[in-house]
Design a protein around this nucleic acid. Structure first.
Length: 295
DNA sequence: CGTGGCCCCTGTGGGC
DNA sequence: TGCCCACAGGGGCCAC
C-alpha cells in the first residue's frame, strides 16, 4: 500500500500521540507477523514454508516496559524506538506495511473502525492503543535490541529517496543493464520509491521506464533525482495517495492521488502531448508511460 | 554476481 | 445475481 510519502505521513500522524507514552502491555494475535532477534530466517517476513518451531517472543520485543522516545523512517520502513527508565536500554520495533498494512493509533476508549486482520496491539499508558492491521500480511514487524542493530539493518537499504541527488543516484545505478524502473523499485538502490512514484518520476523527467539503468547521462540522472524529490515532497504535503485503503495513523485519507499524471491512466491521453499513454508489464508491475514524451 | 520469474495473501471490481 | 479471473502503494527466494 504505502510508499515513502504515505509512510512519512504515518510517521507524522503517529509521533505526537505516541512519543512520551509508556507501553504497558501488548498482544500478538498472529505470531508469524513478528520476527525477533535470533530467529533462524534472520529476514523480515515470516517464512513461507516449513513449520519451524513456534517462535519464542517476549513482551519487550513489542516495546512493553519502555517509553516511546522516537519514530524514525527510512524509505518505506518505520522504526518505533522505546527506552527503559533504568539505564540506556533501548528496544526498537520496525514496521513494514507491505501492500495493505496500517498503523492505527486509538485514544482511550476509542474503537477501531475495522476490527478484522489486526495482528498486534500495543496498550499505552492512559488507555490508548496502537494497532497493526494488515489484511494481506505482506507487511510485518521486526524487533531489534538496540539502535545499532537497526542501523545495521538499514545499511542494507539505499539512501532515502527524499534526499537523493543526481550524482548519488547515478553512482548507485552503476552500469546496470536492467530497466531503470526496476532499479528504482529496488530498495537497495534507493529507499522509498514504489510503483506509483516510480512511474510519476520517470514521466516528469522524460525518461522511458525500459531504458537501461546504467545508460542515464549525468543530466538525466540529475533530472530524475530532482523529479523524485519533488514528487515525493509534493505527495507528502498532499497527505499521501489514498487509492484503495491508505489512511494515516489517525484515520485521515490523503489527496496526492489527484496529482498523478500517469499512474492508473493507461490508455488515456498524455497530459503533456495529448498522445495515448502506454501500459506495459515491467518487473512484474503495471507500468504506464508516454512513448512520445519519455525517451 | 545480477536478474527475471514466481510466490506469499486477501479483497475487490469488471466481464461474462 | 453469481462466478471467475485479473489485479492491487511490496518484497523474499530461487533457478538461470
Amino acid at each position: 500500500m504505502p510508499e515513502l510519502p504515505e509512510v512519512e505521513r504515518i510517521r507524522q500522524s503517529l509521533s505526537p500521540g505516541l512519543i512520551g507514552k509508556r507501553v504497558v502491555g501488548a498482544t500478538l494475535h498472529r505470531r508469524d507477523v513478528l520476527v525477533v532477534p535470533g530467529d533462524p530466517a534472520g529476514g523480515f517476513s515470516r517464512q513461507r514454508s516449513g513449520e519451524s518451531k513456534p517462535r519464542r517472543y517476549e513482551a519487550r520485543h513489542l516495546l512493553v516496559g519502555t517509553t516511546v522516545v522516537d519514530v524514525q523512517r527510512l524509505g518505506k520502513e518505520l522504526a518505533i524506538v522505546g527506552e527503559t527508565e533504568s539505564g540506556p536500554g533501548r528496544s526498537v520495533l520496525l514496521v513494514r506495511l507491505g501492500m495493505t498494512g496500517q498503523l492505527v493509533l486509538l485514544g482511550p476508549g476509542a474503537r477501531a473502525s475495522k476490527r478484522d486482520h489486526i495482528h498486534a496491539t500495543l496498550r499505552l499508558e492512559g488507555g490508548g492503543r496502537l494497532l497493526f492491521r494488515d489484511p494481506r500480511r505482506f507487511g510485518g514487524l521486526r524487533a531489534f535490541e538496540n539502535l545499532e542493530s537497526l542501523r545495521e539493518h538499514w545499511s542494507g537499504l539505499g539512501p532515502d529517496a527524499l534526499g537523493v541527488t543526481g550524482p548519488v543516484l547515478r553512482k548507485r545505478l552503476g552500469g546496470s543493464a536492467r530497466a531503470i524502473k526496476a532499479a528504482l523499485l529496488d530498495q537497495r538502490v534507493i529507499a522509498g520509491v514504489g510503483n506509483i512514484y516510480a512511474d510519476e518520476a520517470l514521466f516528469e523527467s522524460g525518461i522511458a521506464p525500459g531504458r537501461a539503468a546504467g545508460s542515464l547521462s549525468e543530466g538525466e540522472a540529475s533530472k530524475l533525482a530532482s523529479a523524485i524529490r519533488a514528487i515525493l515532497a509534493r505527495a507528502i504535503e498532499a497527505g499521501g495517495s489514498s487509492i484503495r485503503d491508505y489512511l494515516d495513523a489517525g484515520g485521515v485519507a490523503g489527496m496526492a492521488q489527484t496529482l498523478h499524471r500517469v499512474y492508473g491512466r493507461g490508455g488515456l491521453a498524455c497530459q503533456r502531448c495529448g498522445g495515448e499513454l502506454a501500459q506495459i508489464l515491467l518487473a512484474q508491475r503495471t507500468t504506464v508511460f508516454c512513448p512520445a514524451c519519455q525517451r
